[in-house]
Design a binder for these strands. Sequence first.
DNA 1: ATATCTGCAAATCATTTGCGAATTG
DNA 2: CAATTCGCAAATGATTTGCAGATAT
Lengths: 131, 131
Amino acid sequence: MSPFFRKSRQRQMILDTLSDMKTHPTAQEIFARVREVDSQVGQATVYRNLRILKEQGEIIELSFGTGEKRYDRNVSRHEHFTCRRCGKIEDIYPNYRSLTGSLSEKGFQIDEWRIEAFGICQGCIEPNQPH
Amino acid sequence: MSPFFRKSRQRQMILDTLSDMKTHPTAQEIFARVREVDSQVGQATVYRNLRILKEQGEIIELSFGTGEKRYDRNVSRHEHFTCRRCGKIEDIYPNYRSLTGSLSEKGFQIDEWRIEAFGICQGCIEPNQPH
DNA sequence: ATATCTGCAAATCATTTGCGAATTG
DNA sequence: CAATTCGCAAATGATTTGCAGATAT
């Protein structure tokens, strides 16, 4: 049986906070933001609820090979581009078809891709290189 | 100036150990294996040398969204398929062209992809489902 | 010689867990 | 009221760092 969840003020607050942040924040960043509104919230609550929200399919968990995980309110299928210069993470919508096609012929039964792109973002290339 | 590295018995042992392992092991798994040969080796030595070997381009560091990093002696450009059932990690060689093409048109200057595929491997699909 | 490297132990960072109290349906 | 959730503090797991002594060039 799939788990039953009650509503909680804290869980809603965490979801709202993530919705407001467009930066693909870490659990710690969400925790800091939530604490600004209610300094009573414990960090275990944030971690626990991020896991629950993920199980509920309300949010997505990301990882970019750096220690910490990041969270995303955008649950539609998409991937991410990280700018090496400014660190900004942008959503990208690649074409998966060709990837999957050539590999399924080789006997791979792939049901999920995790794709990350790295490079220099438009803003950092354009007029004058920051830094 | 790029750092200067001396040779060390331990570093060579770590590299040889990784070469022998075909499993994309974690630092801890490499540490355990190295300790079987020389029980004096400290774990800091393993972590330090894996970082150095990565900087030297001798090995590649992988991460699959689980806490720990994994290491790979195969430095040619390739990606990985992880079997959800048996956990085995296989090398895959996808066609990047189409991915990069459609996105560079949109102004992304992508210089690196990190791609992971998940699914069920051939061995786990075939005759009788294990478990 | 002397800068690099080692082993050890302690520190750090992200995340999880145990527990008694508070909250929700 | 009975299960879920909370806040706290302590535990965990992976990795890093400080340091005195050993080693490589």
